[in-house]
Nucleic acid binder design. Structure first.
Lengths: 98, 98
DNA sequence: ATAACATATAGATGATTGTCAATGCGTTGA
DNA sequence: TCAACGCATTGACAATCATCTATATGTTAT
């Protein structure tokens, strides 16, 4: 996990719908049809959001027949949390002031 | 801190430059001129980013004469961390599956 | 085979974003 | 008072984004 990865994840979580998707997935694996019910968006739009969440490795998809199942990737999430926490606690080298 | 606030903060952190600004501010208060040196952007662009970081309460600005000093608002940051951590650990009510 | 279903992809569109040059505004020092 | 300085604001522009409709792809059941 580096700054680029973290910024990508932040960007992914920066959309209210995607943040809510992550919240729902925190409850456990869900298929797209169940996720879709929780929103007022069309199926292609949901698919688009899932692709973004998967591309930053925050969510994992697995197909089972017709259904796509999505799970929250807790390892990525934990790494993200620890990265940004570290970012704000460990001082860096630039001590310069005005 | 609610989902809207958290999404706003994620959005603010979703830009690599802003994430780096936060990282630098973690070292302590900085003025705009020092921040500017760390980037390849123009002064108005930095000003724009600072406005976004301040508007979600992640950063606080204070003027002293000609200089604007910026500090990381650790309280907001901690609330943010605990919110998204809670989001992915506490199960919600929707237990429905396919 | 064929119809119904679940999801993904393509293409279009309006909104938002990051960036810059130009300019404005308040402060400091000569 | 006036010039220089630090920063904010404005307006413009290209790029990205969230969303939609239409369509394609793969799967299940008849």
């Amino acid at each position: 996990m580096n700054e680029t990865d973290a910024a990508l994840i932040c960007k992914a979580l920066g959309d209210p719908n995607r943040l809510k998707i992550v919240k729902i997935l925190a409850d456990g694996e869900k298929c797209a049809c169940v996720l879709l019910e929780a929103f007022q968006i069309t199926q292609p739009t949901l698919s688009h959001h899932m692709k973004i969440l998967c591309s930053c490795n925050l969510v994992q998809a697995s197909k089972e027949g017709k259904w796509s199942h999505y799970t929250l990737n807790r390892r990525t999430f934990d790494e993200f949390i620890s990265f940004i926490t570290k970012t704000t606690t460990s001082p860096n080298d630039e001590k310069e002031n005005c």
